[in-house]
Amino acid sequence: MTIVRSLLARREALLVLACLLLLAAITARFPAFSTPKNLAGVFNDTSILIMMALGQSAVILTKSIDLSVAANVALTGMTVAMLNHLVPGLPVVVLILVAIGMGMLLGAINGFLVWWLDIPAIVVTLGTMTIFRGLAFVESGGAWVNAHEMSPAFLELPRTLILGLPVLSWTGLVAIVLATLLFTRTGLGRAFYATGGNAVAAVYAGIDIGKTRFLAFVLSGTVAGLCGYFWVSRYAVAYVDVASGFELDTIAACVIGGVSTIGGVGTVGGVVLGALFLGIIKNALPVIGISPFWQMAISGAIIITAVVINARGERVKGRVILRRKELPL
């Protein structure tokens, strides 16, 4: 019993178990789902979510939230697609750098507003979310950039195979490694945890919490910018409503992965597993033949379950504090 409980206490273990059970249930009816080739496909499909959820988790760790990431994808995606259409000779590397730079800038705007104006992140990014999408509409005039208007190199890169895996999957894997290094082995990563865990204590320990939050937003924006390119080239189309509502998926992946919405708690492994869990469900439900509306309901139920588990973890700590405060019995 204690073993089970300590296992359940590790969110990663719980998620691996949940993913395996889910795969087993699906495989029971559709054995083809669990072939290595299909699973690699699921991972490739989920790579964008993994990367953006990692960026989002940095922001949530600092006790903030970034609602503008999906709009960032739409704006940078539209920008590089139009650039590719207008200047077909531009190398893809330049376009990727543009996407990264632009995403970084959009993230810096969020971070700047949160840092200097001291406005709650949810309000700032709710505003910039609308602005970014609005800008995507302004620059495109509401028009679509379709596959035939994009250069072959622009479209090919994400699916180019290296050692049997597409570039998109490799980027996802590299992102996981880099995030692990950043979160566990650098002062900035530690500052993310400290800022969200106890902002006052972080200040006293010499951490500039405003700058830390700013950098978290820059990171989240940069990743979103890169994903803006991947999104339009992978789906071979750019329009204003690209990735609509995807910011909620990134937040959901974090919450399912055990990132505390009040900051300071979460791991890269948890976030990746949270994203994969959502990815498996998204890929499997159509196979099983469940309608998209049920899919939304099921995703929602899972998110609430995860939040309940998170909240239970946090409540235990609360009791300890109460005992120390010597409240009347």
Binding site: Y193, A194, G197, N198, V200, A201, A202, V203, Y204, A205, G206, I207, D208, S260, G264, V265, K317, I321, R324
Partner: peptide, 25 residues
Amino acid sequence: PSDAIDAGIVYVPEERGRHGAITAM
């Protein structure tokens, strides 16, 4: 505070619960 710590001055605040430890870490 980072300047102060570098110089060799540290401050242990009064409300150690609220200002001192980061309990989740």
